[in-house]
Nucleic acid binder design. Sequence first.
DNA 1: GTAATTTTGGTATTTAAATGCTCAAATATA
DNA 2: TATATTTGAGCATTTAAATACCAAAATTAC
Lengths: 132, 132
Amino acid sequence: MPKIVSLSEAASIALHGIILIAREKKGLNVVKIAERTDTSKHHVAKVMQRLVKAGYLNSQRGPSGGFVLRKEPKDVNFLDIYEVIEGVIEIGECPMDKQICPFGKCIMNNVTSKMTLNFKEYLEKQTIDQYI
Amino acid sequence: MPKIVSLSEAASIALHGIILIAREKKGLNVVKIAERTDTSKHHVAKVMQRLVKAGYLNSQRGPSGGFVLRKEPKDVNFLDIYEVIEGVIEIGECPMDKQICPFGKCIMNNVTSKMTLNFKEYLEKQTIDQYI
DNA sequence: GTAATTTTGGTATTTAAATGCTCAAATATA
DNA sequence: TATATTTGAGCATTTAAATACCAAAATTAC
């Protein structure tokens, strides 16, 4: 059962997490995010760490600590967050990333590139404020 | 650099290979398919083996052996071949394959399912005879 | 009939990626 | 100031999947 359009658990945690955080004024900690997304706190911790480093979250250690959004919800979109976790989505001509097609003409007719572009554009349109 | 729409080397070999075979009346052997697709003969051998077992190819051992198409080119489409290699493409509601969304409402709005369905339908429309 | 060729099947290796763990560092609260 | 809480960083583990290899079986051609 192949996944055509893939969303890793990490990307899922990042997107769900940032929405949950944006919804709370006082911020949210790892444990709560893990509970509400039904994932492990270890994994949540790792993912949040990366969002902090990338400048999307502020973190606060110690009792009553946690994460708060560092930007305006309308200024953060799904693509930003997705790419922090998965890397930048690149639109390549060849689905196999070959420089020259040994086959002659590509049998995929750029369908994979078009789909990828569509998905990218969709993610870019989804700003966090639409999910608060 | 994540791949949104993924095509494994195995799937690529299968699709390219079956077209190459369909184009030759006398069949084609592993070495030639590997050359023309710029892949390893080991990998080609494994992939072809699966297409034989699945009934899409006949194989012939020994000198001047190789593979020939077992069906009419118009009766074989890309989806058939893709699924032999990758498994059946299933259209699930949840991109994370969760039964109940712990989050409440899915943040992906079925976009991943829709894209997957589109891709599946596209593959199904591409019959081998269109590529001879 | 012998040797060369080619597929077959099983196994091994590699790789990547995801996920999990542990202890150290920071900080709020009492 | 002590303690409990929480994030941070690096490393360990797991898993899955893809790819590669090798020896055996089949078959043709000479």
